[in-house]
Design a protein around this nucleic acid. Structure first.
Length: 254
DNA sequence: ATGTCCCAACTTTTGGGA
């Protein structure tokens, strides 16, 4: 089973690239973030013609998450439930091919002294609680744009990023909390030395210079993570005509 | 060079967000 995640930075602009990539990579499940579309505008029919069922949770101008699947989509949920604070359309869940899938768009945080940063940490706490409460015998994977680089080896220059979001101890502690409840950073298994990125700023020729970060993560429950057989970032998708600033991250499970 | 891209609107230029 091939599971992937991609922050597309507007599905309206990126649909041709997504359709092209589905045909190329043939994922069984693809999670999207930052669709920036209303539910009415999401291109369910064009995706269906490409062989994928889809569910979308959007708000229009900002955020927006989706799950595409060619192995079924059941038990769809959005947000953290009635008592949760999702802070925008940032979470959609579904069961696909027997695996519980959560497409996640973690708040950016903006700056360490921002109220939005506290919101980011709180969002991660809510995700951790949701995952902790999932049935022990169910395969679960939370994947998406976490806006957190797990380690200094996951950014192009740790020195240049001191004091910035995405690399702070507070944010990394929230990822560690997911690990503590049994969720594993699947990509790390195959690239223990780091240096492989999933996002490069549009500005400053960052992609060309190799100035990137790995912030798009695939966090799998323990037994599922044990069945991971490979992973990769498709850097080709960051090139060419109207790319997203993120590349797709893919993991294969036996 | 805070150098790009994408969205919406009191829309043809600006401001917000990443």
């Amino acid at each position: 089973m091939r599971i992937a995640t991609w922050n597309v930075n507007s599905m309206n602009v990126r649909l041709p690239r997504v359709l092209e990539w589905l045909e190329l990579a043939e994922p069984d499940v693809l999670c999207l973030q930052e669709t920036k579309q209303s539910d009415e505008k999401f291109p369910h029919e064009q995706l269906k013609e490409a062989g994928y069922d889809s569910v979308h949770h959007g708000e229009g101008r900002w955020n927006g998450v989706a799950i595409l699947s060619r192995v079924g989509i059941e038990e769809v949920t959005t947000g953290f439930g009635p008592d949760g604070d999702e802070r925008g359309a940032r979470l959609i869940g579904a069961t696909c091919g027997g695996v519980r899938i959560l497409s996640c768009y973690v708040p950016n945080g903006r700056s360490l002294d921002s109220e939005h940063f506290e919101g980011k940490l709180a969002w991660m706490d809510q995700l951790c609680a949701l995952l902790r409460d999932s049935p022990a015998d169910q395969d679960v994977v939370a994947l998406g744009d976490f806006n957190i680089a797990p380690d200094d080896a996951d950014v192009w220059d740790p020195e240049a990023l001191i004091g910035m979001t995405h690399v702070s101890p507070q944010e990394r502690a929230k990822l560690a909390a997911l690990t503590e409840i049994g969720f594993d950073d699947v990509f790390r298994r195959f690239y223990p030395d780091g240096g492989v990125f999933s996002w490069w700023d549009y500005r400053d020729g960052a992609f060309h210079k190799g100035h990137g970060m790995r912030i798009d993560l695939i966090m799998a429950s323990a037994s599922l993570a044990e069945r991971a057989v490979g992973a990769y970032v498709d850097r080709e998708a960051r090139k060419g005509h109207k790319p997203s600033d993120h590349a797709p991250v893919v993991a294969d499970f036996s």
